[in-house]
Design a protein around this nucleic acid. Structure first.
Length: 803
RNA sequence: GCAGAUGUGGCGGAAUUGGCAUACGCGCAUGAUUCAGGUUCAUGUCCAUAUUACUUGGGUGCGGGUUCAAGUCCCGCCAUCUGCACCA
């Protein structure tokens, strides 16, 4: 009789063996077939790992372990996205240097990850807050700057009127500061920006050449939001100036009944003296400044606005005089900050027109525009539209743009919803932006041989009263000389956002200690692109897009060998709390993986995380389910007591074993871990029921289970004396012929309802199958048979008509 | 509001992409083992209905439709979840 399964002892033992043997070291042997598997590196927060982290990590660990056994040189690295706001806030509160906080958190995370037995190559560990790492983050920024893709502009930020600091959106709760409760307003601040919009087309088109799950592609495309439309110029009455708007529907130009300016539109100041109700408009603008873009568009149901008294626009096609309004549903950040409103054919315009009693003119036939906006582009025909009347929407678009171009009243224009990337943070715990501000030379890059520009030690991590970074108080550090003219100058005190370090980390893993560049050309040529990158859906539009942007830029500059960083992208679902809600400290439903490892073992944790449900869907954590997985592993452990000699599979189970090898091999690659485990459970049930298992059966079973539960299988491998290490074994093959059943049970339906079942040879002919089926349900065949359907291996359906 | 997804037993979820709905696991019930509890093992478990039978009917969020056949395809609703650019 075997000893009791004791995961705590077994797991520690094998983790040490793997470490000592450098079992999962990615070799720099560039002649082998490679596979680069990547998971999103964690932000080492003070809370430690929660059970959401192991889901993607275990999934990719399974693929990595399997591929190693199939002969691949696998790179499966791990590191730390270590700069960030919560660490800084913790440091401010507790007066501890963020470096120390980060160090402690990383130590804790690493110990947790090690206890789960991941096959990471720890020799390639990186940390974005390490100067040796951010040296190259800063270097990339300088390249962007020199290419004209980094620039400074005035941007509104969230400003806490109490703390007098800039706040992250997340720190603003209901328009108030999360910490002190004071109102938050939008304040203009000079910010570094990266011109990601210059790469909008490349980022869309690049998606054609990569293997991303469809919803990631769709979401990125929608986020970039490319639309083809036109800019139209409206003359302002009695002035030389024209008001330019962007529209995707120039065909509806005859239906314009008013214009709307964003409250921040420069014309409001420019025409201040002409506007009779300027005070009212200024008050409205003040009010809008308290709302975020999100709130402004969300409050769509209660539209607000003020009509400008004193300015009128002229319709370029029919000369009609059109009133100009100001409303916050128009955003300065999209298009030109002004729109032409066509209430008959746009929902937001329609609601606004209804509320303020503005006219609604139908220009496309098909709906009842007094009841609702008619927005169907496909079927509509133009009416009330002068020379466009009678044309389809498509034709009218072309014609009107042609007309506007000819008269110099407009032009075709492609627009993007994507906005440039705000790259400045007025914070301490981030990469210093390596720029010097010289009164003579302007913004001057720090020479590359002076990188890394290290973060100086400061006394307080609190931003200054003026909203500048804490670095601004470090006069020794701030005051410097201009690298260009040698005169006195000041350093930039803003730091980079956390996204910076994570935008290129996958490059650094290929050669983490290289000191002449981001990584050696040989390492990049061999390892890049990442073959498979798995991460959360929540990173689709920000991190994933930002890193694709940086990579594409580096490619255009000749620094990386391929245009796209990630060949394949998949996404995991969230692990929710037992109550079906997102896990969070405030909801009190967080589960710590340490507790699961301690009570049930890492292999049970891994198995449950994979068995919990479809990998790409959210699933609630249930401790009862964990127990079921532990029971499964207990049964696997006990199989050792019923092993019988035998170099081949049990004849009775041979078909099922070959089927299981096929299913598990395919399911691991297709991220269907739950059904792979279900198939292994079924096989284990068969072994237990049979009361015996041959050495060959057990051997292949252990290999198949190994990627999911590496410790217990390695231990059993050793107990069974199969020789060597399981992790060094070759992945099993299956024989397609041997997966085929000799006999199959098929359903017999009469008029689509199952009325019986028959067992027939798998290769039975259609006629024989139908004949056998008819016999099985003969008592029910009372009418005239009108149709007979045979689906091989599935069913026979006999359709009859009575009477 | 915009964008992306999801909805199947008491619960987590399967279903080869139009072919026997509910695999696998949990829970529960009954029995065995045990002084007992736990563990372990065996059997059963979609709902209703009938039965000393292998009965009959219903059933994949709701309402329609296509088809010999629909969880799967089409049209229209409803509900829930995720993201929205300074959390990462």
């Amino acid at each position: 009789m075997s000893e009791k399964y004791n995961p705590q002892a077994i797991e520690k033992k094998w983790q040490k063996v793997w470490d000592d043997e450098k079992a999962f070291h990615a070799e720099n042997d560039y002649t082998k077939p490679k596979m680069y598997n990547l998971v999103e590196f964690p932000y080492p927060s003070g809370q430690g790992l929660h059970v959401g982290h192991p889901r993607p990590y275990t999934a990719m660990d399974i693929v990595s372990r399997k591929r190693r056994m199939q002969g691949y040189n696998v790179l499966f690295p791990m590191g730390w996205d270590a700069f960030g706001l919560p660490t800084e806030n913790y440091a401010i509160k507790n007066h501890i240097h963020p470096k120390i906080v980060t160090h402690n958190n990383v130590r804790h995370f690493k110990q947790q990850l090690k206890s789960i037995g991941y096959s990471f190559d720890w020799d390639r560990e990186i940390n974005t807050s390490d100067p040796e790492y951010y040296h190259w983050t800063q270097w990339i920024f300088l390249k962007l700057f020199k290419a004209g893709l980094a620039y400074k502009t005035e941007m509104p930020i969230n400003w806490c009127t109490g703390c007098k600091v800039g706040l992250a959106n997340e720190e603003v709760v209901g328009g108030k500061c999360e910490r002190c409760g004071s109102p938050v307003i939008r304040k203009m601040q000079s910010q570094w920006m990266l011109k990601i919009t210059a790469y909008a087309d490349k980022l869309i088109d690049g998606l054609d050449d990569v293997d991303y799950i469809e919803r990631v592609k769709t979401q990125q495309k929608n986020w970039i939001g490319r639309s083809h439309g036109a800019e139209v110029d409206f003359q302002i009455k009695d002035h030389d100036e024209r008001l330019t708007v962007y529209t995707t529907r120039p065909d509806t130009l005859f239906g314009v009944t008013y214009m709307v300016l964003s409250p921040e539109h420069p014309y409001i100041e420019q025409f201040k003296d002409e506007i009779k109700n300027y005070d009212e408009i200024a008050a409205y603008r003040e009010e809008a400044a308290h709302k975020s873009d999100f709130e402004r568009t969300e409050l769509a149901k209660e539209k607000t606005g003020v009509c400008i008294d004193g300015l009128t626009a002229i319709d370029p096609v029919n000369g009609a005089e059109i009133p100009i309004w100001v409303s916050d549903y128009v955003l300065m950040s999209y298009g030109t900050g002004a729109i032409m409103a066509v209430p008959a054919h746009d929902e937001r315009d329609w609601e606004f027109a209804k509320k303020f009693g503005l006219p609604i003119i139908e220009v496309i036939k098909g709906g009842n525009v007094q009841e609702a906006a008619f927005t169907d582009v496909a079927t509509g025909t133009l009416v009330n539209s002068g020379f466009l009347t009678g044309k389809s929407v498509e034709e009218a678009k072309k014609e009107i743009i042609h007309y506007l171009e000819e008269k110099h009243l407009g032009r075709p224009k492609t627009n993007y919803k994507l906005r440039d990337w705000v790259f400045s943070r007025q914070r301490y715990w981030g990469e210093p932006i390596p720029i010097v501000k010289c009164p003579k030379c302007g913004y001057v890059p720090v020479p590359e041989d002076q990188l890394p520009l290290e973060l100086p030690e400061v006394e307080s991590y609190m931003p200054t009263d003026t909203g500048e970074s804490p670095l601004a108080a470090m006069t020794d550090w701030v005051n410097t000389t201009c690298p260009c003219c040698g005169g006195p100058a000041k350093r930039e005190t803003d730091t980079m956002p956390q996204w910076a370090g994570s935008s290129w980390y996958y490059i650094r893993y290929t050669d983490p200690h290289y000191d002449k560049g981001i990584a050696s050309p040989e390492a990049m040529k061999y390892w890049l692109p990442v073959d498979w990158y798995n991460g959360g859906m929540e990173h689709t539009t920000l991190h994933l897009l930002y890193s694709r942007f940086w990579h594409r830029f580096l490619y255009d500059q000749g620094y990386v060998p391929c245009p796209e960083p990630y060949q394949k992208r998949t996404s995991h679902g969230m692990i929710l709390g037992a109550n079906g809600e997102k896990m969070s400290k405030s909801r009190g439903n967080v589960v710590n993986p340490d507790d699961i490892v301690r009570e049930y073992g890492a292999d049970t944790l891994r198995t449950y995380e994979m068995f919990i449900g479809a990998f790409d869907m959210a699933a609630p954590w249930k401790e009862e389910g964990v127990k079921g997985c532990r029971r499964f592993l207990d049964r696997v452990w006990k199989l050792q007591d019923i092993v019988v000699p035998g170099d081949s599979y049990s004849p009775a189970l041979e078909t099922q074993i070959h089927q299981t090898i096929r299913k598990v091999s395919n399911d691991y690659e297709n991220m269907k871990y739950n059904t792979a485990i279900a198939a292994l459970m079924s096989l284990q049930n068969e072994f237990t029921k049979a009361g015996k298992i041959t050495r060959a059966d057990y051997r292949v079973f252990l290999i198949l289970l190994n990627p999911v539960a590496p410790h217990i299988t390695e231990e059993l491998w050793s107990i069974m004396n199969y020789g060597g290490r399981l992790y060094q074994t070759t992945w099993p093959e299956y024989d397609e012929e041997k997966t085929k059943e000799k006999e199959v049970e098929i359903a017999v339906q009469v008029n689509g309802k199952v009325r019986g079942k028959i067992t027939v040879p798998a290769d039975i002919s259609k006629d024989d199958a139908i004949a056998a089926a008819k016999e099985a349900v003969s008592s029910r065949l009372t009418g005239t048979i009108v149709k007979e359907i045979y689906v091989p291996g599935r069913l026979v359906n006999i359709v009859q008509k009575n009477g």
